[in-house]
C-alpha cells in the first residue's frame, strides 16, 4: 500500500560552533490519505524539525538532512531544490503554525494575502480570487467575510487569525496540511473551536492532517493515528485507541500518567517522569529513554531497541517487549496504572 506521505529513516543534524546536534536520528512514519496523524513529543524531541524537513524549511547552512527519504506521492522531497519546494508548499502541502502572526503579513489586508496565493498557484483572475477568498473565509467560520476581507491582521483576534491561516493553507486544496501546534497559543474555548473546524474540514474535503502537538488532550480529540517521538526517534506509533488503551512504551505510559484525570474525583498524586530528556548534542548509545525509565535493563543502556510490531499499525521500540525480557508484569502494570 502506498501512503500519501512516507518518512523513512530520516536523519537531520544541526552544526553549531561546539559540535553537532543530532535532532532527528532515524525517524520513520507515514500519513495515509484522509487521516489525521498526531506527532506527539516534548520540546526538543524533533517534532518541529520533522515538519521543517518535510516542507524544505530546515535552516541552512547549520541544519541538513543527512540520511533518509521523505516520499510525498512517490516523489522524494529530500532531493527537491528550493523552487520545487515552493511549488509543493503552495499547492499540495498547506501549513499552519503555532503563532498565526508569523505567517501573516501585518501590512497587508487579510483578503489580499489569500488572493495572492490563489492568483499565484491556481492562476485565477483577481476577481475570481476575491470571490474564492470570501468563500474560504466563510468556510473557516469568519462571519461577515466580505467586510473582514479588507481588514488587517491586527484587527483580528488570535483565534480569528488562526482561522485566516487555515484558510490560506486550504486555498489550493492541498492533500496534506501540516499543523505545528496550531492551538497552543490559543485559549481553551478558542482551541475547541479550531479543533472542531479542522475536524469538519477534514470530513468535507478528505484532507490529510499531520498534527504536531504536545497536548494529549488534543490528540485524544482529533487523531486517527499517533506517533510518539522522543529524543529524535519515534518510540511508539499506532492507532489512537491502541496508544491510549494499550501503550507499549514506558515513555507513553509516563506521558499518560503525568496528566491529571479530570474524570476522577479523588485527589491522586501525579506520577511524573523523573529527570530531563537527553541532550542530543551527545545522544546516548542505547535507548534514549533509559535514563528516565523506571524499568531500565542493562541492555537498554547499551543497545538501541529495534521495532517490535504488535498489530498492523502498532509498533514500539522498547526492550521490555522482547521475549528475553523478564516478565515483571506487576511492575509494568503499576507503571501503566
Amino acid at each position: 500500500m502506498s501512503h500519501l506521505l512516507e518518512v523513512d529513516d530520516l536523519k537531520v543534524s544541526f552544526h553549531v560552533s561546539s559540535g553537532e546536534i543530532q535532532a532527528l536520528r532515524g525517524v520513520s512514519f507515514h500519513v495515509n490519505s484522509g487521516e489525521t496523524l498526531a506527532v506527539v513529543g516534548e520540546s526538543g524531541c524533533g517534532k518541529s524539525v520533522t515538519a521543517q524537513a518535510i516542507m524544505g524549511m530546515i535552516p541552512s547552512p547549520q541544519g541538513r538532512v543527512k540520511e533518509g527519504r521523505i516520499l510525498f506521492k512517490g516523489q522524494d522531497l529530500t532531493k527537491f531544490n528550493k523552487k520545487q519546494f515552493r511549488s509543493v508548499r503552495g499547492s499540495e502541502i498547506g501549513m499552519v503554525f503555532q503563532d498565526p502572526m508569523t505567517s501573516l503579513n501585518p501590512t497587508m489586508k487579510v483578503g489580499s494575502q489569500i488572493d495572492e496565493v490563489l492568483v499565484k498557484n491556481q492562476k485565477l483572475s483577481k476577481k475570481e480570487a476575491k470571490q474564492k477568498t470570501i468563500e474560504l473565509l466563510k468556510l473557516v467560520g469568519i462571519s461577515d467575510a466580505s467586510s473582514r476581507y479588507s481588514q488587517y491582521p491586527h484587527e483580528f483576534s488570535g483565534g480569528m487569525r488562526q482561522r485566516v491561516v487555515i484558510a490560506i493553507a486550504l486555498a489550493c486544496n492541498p492533500e496534506l496540511i501540516i499543523a505545528d501546534e496550531p492551538t497552543t497559543a490559543l485559549d481553551v474555548t478558542i482551541q475547541a473551536q479550531i479543533l472542531e473546524l479542522l475536524k469538519k474540514l477534514q470530513k468535507e474535503r478528505n484532507t490529510s492532517i499531520m498534527l504536531i502537538t504536545h497536548d494529549l488532550g488534543v490528540v485524544a480529540e482529533v487523531a486517527d493515528r499517533v506517533a510518539i517521538m522522543y529524543a529524535g526517534v519515534v518510540v511508539e506509533s499506532g492507532r489512537v485507541e491502541e496508544i491510549f488503551e494499550n501503550p507499549k512504551h514506558p515513555y507513553t505510559w509516563g506521558l499518560l500518567n503525568s496528566v491529571p484525570k479530570l474524570e476522577s474525583s479523588e485527589k491522586e498524586r501525579l506520577i511524573p517522569i523523573e529527570g530531563s530528556p537527553p541532550d542530543l548534542f551527545a545522544p546516548p548509545k542505547g535507548c534514549p529513554f533509559a535514563e528516565r525509565c523506571p524499568f531500565t535493563m542493562e541492555v537498554c543502556l547499551e543497545h538501541m531497541p529495534g521495532k517490535e510490531v504488535f498489530s498492523e499499525n502498532h509498533q514500539a521500540r522498547c526492550w521490555l517487549n522482547d521475549p528475553r525480557a523478564p516478565k515483571n508484569e506487576e511492575l509494568i502494570a503499576a507503571g501503566r496504572e
Binding site: 532515524g26 529527570g275 530531563s276 551527545a282 533509559a290 542493562e298 541492555v299 543502556l301
Partner: peptide, 26 residues
C-alpha cells in the same frame, strides 16, 4: 535499526540506576 548480531541475552536484567544521573549538564 536492526538487531545487534552479538549475543545480548545476558543483558536482560535490571540496570544499576545509581550510576545514572539524568540531570547532568552534557
Amino acid at each position: 535499526m536492526s538487531q545487534p548480531q552479538i549475543n545480548i541475552d545476558h543483558l536482560f536484567r535490571p540496570a544499576d540506576k545509581e550510576s545514572l544521573h539524568s540531570d547532568k549538564i552534557a
